[in-house]
Amino acid sequence: MTVLPKDIPGDSLKVTVGTANGKPGDTVTVPVTFADVAKMKNVGTCNFYLGYDASLLEVVSVDAGPIVKNAAVNFSSSASNGTISFLFLDNTITDELITADGVFANIKFKLKSVTAKTTTPVTFKDGGAFGDGTMSKIASVTKTNGSVTIDP
Rank of each mutant, 00 (worst) to 15 (best):
P24K: 12
F86I: 07
T115H: 07
V122W: 01
M135H: 00
K112W: 01
L50P: 05
G82K: 15
D101P: 05
L111R: 03
G146P: 00
A116T: 08
K110N: 04
T144N: 05
P121N: 08
T99M: 12
T134P: 01
N74S: 03
L111S: 04
N106Q: 08
K112T: 04
L56H: 13
C46P: 01
G25D: 11
S55R: 09
N145A: 05
V103R: 05
S80C: 05
T29P: 12
G131H: 01
V148Q: 04
V15I: 06
G131N: 00
P31R: 09
S61C: 07
V68R: 02
I150R: 14
T119D: 05
K108I: 04
L50D: 07
D53A: 10
L111A: 04
I93D: 00
A54L: 09
A71L: 07
L13C: 10
G133D: 04
D53H: 10
F48P: 01
T94I: 13
S55E: 11
S55D: 14
T29G: 14
L56A: 08
P9F: 12
A129P: 00
V68P: 10
T27Y: 11
I98H: 00
K41G: 11
V122D: 01
I107N: 04
I84F: 05
G44P: 01
S85A: 14
F34C: 12
F109C: 03
T33I: 11
N70I: 04
N74K: 04
K117V: 04
I107S: 01
S140L: 08
D90H: 02
K108W: 02
T119S: 09
I138M: 09
V141T: 07
G128S: 02
V141F: 02
G128E: 04
K112V: 04
A38G: 14
A79M: 15
V73I: 14
F124I: 02
G146Y: 06
Y52S: 14
K23D: 12
L89K: 01
N42E: 15
T27H: 12
D36N: 14
A105R: 01
T115V: 07
V28Q: 08
F109M: 05
T94D: 00
A139R: 15
Y49D: 00
K14E: 14
V103A: 10
A54H: 11
G128Q: 02
E96C: 00
L57C: 07
S136C: 15
T144C: 05
I98Y: 00
T115G: 06
A129C: 01
F124D: 02
I107D: 02
V62T: 12
V37H: 11
V3G: 12
P31Q: 11
V122S: 06
V59M: 11
P24C: 14
G65E: 09
A64Q: 07
D90T: 02
A139N: 04
S113F: 03
V73S: 05
T83G: 15
I98N: 04
V62K: 10
G25L: 10
N91C: 15
G51H: 14
M40L: 08
K14L: 09
D132E: 04
A38R: 13
A139S: 05
L56P: 07
I84S: 03
K6N: 12
C46Y: 06
N145S: 07
N21T: 13
G128L: 02
T2A: 13
L87E: 02
N21M: 10
N81R: 15
A72Y: 13
T94W: 01
G82I: 15
A139T: 05
A116L: 05
T27A: 11
T99C: 05
E96N: 00
V68C: 10
I150N: 14
G44M: 14
S12G: 12
G128P: 01
I8R: 09
K143H: 01
L50V: 08
E96T: 01
V148W: 02
N74F: 00
S85E: 01
N145C: 03
K143Q: 02
T83A: 09
A72G: 13
T16K: 14
L4R: 11
I8V: 12
L97K: 02
G44L: 14
T118A: 07
N47H: 02
V30Y: 10
G131L: 01
K69T: 10
N91K: 06
V62G: 09
T45H: 00
